[in-house]
Write a protein that binds this DNA or RNA. Structure first.
Lengths: 137, 137
DNA sequence: TTTACTGCAAACCATTTGCAAGCAT
DNA sequence: ATGCTTGCAAATGGTTTGCAGTAAA
């Protein structure tokens, strides 16, 4: 973990290590609030300030340690930066399933080719929402 | 315009008519702030309160007069509720181009079929970002 | 008249920032 | 030792809300 920080010229402070570890252990994307609460829950890091959490998250985003996700939920979520993928989120229980799709990237390529104003797409966000099998019941 | 309001059981107040008209005339999605400034610019409706704008926007969203769009820009945008489509937004000048794509809907269908946790998707948001031809120059 | 709608000001919530103190290198 | 990091508290920006007055039906 210290390597990840050192590589990017970040000092390996307890706050950063703790926050990174939370993301490594988490299977779901987390908002600042989630991270902060998780810290408070621990004995060791319960005194890390909320502002530090926000600062660390945006530092990590800049350094491509984390990626931002927009779930239309009022606050911004982050997850470890890994291979490009998308999410399906359950309206009710917030379960998140990830998926990859080369088909989507292909379709997007076709769209730009038809565009009159754009030549290429630099980024896209695609978020799906539905009810998961548990919540449909 | 009054019909649109009456159909949904909304009172046809000057604020609502003015806001609806702004959307009918606008070719781009608008945030509350944009609507509010546009009102202030007019002689007739310059005294409509910001809170009223927010209340009207969410009323219109509930009534499916408007749809919410999330451009990752800090504030929420709205546009007239029309046929399902997506947007490509320019990072630099914020130009928005709309497009429809049956291919995308088809791909999404395939994705759900492969999902272990979800049976169907109720909503999705897809936003593309790039530099428009003007801004690439 | 009745109830929905509005303006105003205060409250809210997520996030950011200035500053002085603290710690990693 | 030096300057990056942090905590704290205050500020921000977008949006929401309580309340009392106002207007659409």
């Amino acid at each position: 973990m210290k390597e990840i920080l050192k590589e990017r010229g970040y000092k390996a402070t307890p706050a950063r290590l703790a926050i990174l570890e939370i993301f490594i252990k988490s299977k779901a994307p987390l908002a600042a609030e989630n991270v902060y609460k998780e810290l408070k829950r621990s004995k060791k890091n319960k005194d890390i300030n909320e502002a530090t959490v926000y600062r660390t998250l945006s530092l990590f985003e800049e350094g491509k340690v984390l990626t931002k996700i927009d779930f239309r939920k009022g606050s911004v979520f982050f997850e470890l930066n890994k291979k490009h993928h998308h999410h399906i989120t359950c309206f009710k229980c917030d379960t998140v399933e990830e998926f990859e799709s080369t088909a989507i990237e292909k379709v997007l390529g076709g769209i730009v080719r038809n565009s009159s104003k754009f030549i290429n797409i630099k980024e896209h966000s695609l978020e799906l929402f539905g009810l998961c099998k548990n919540c449909v019941a």
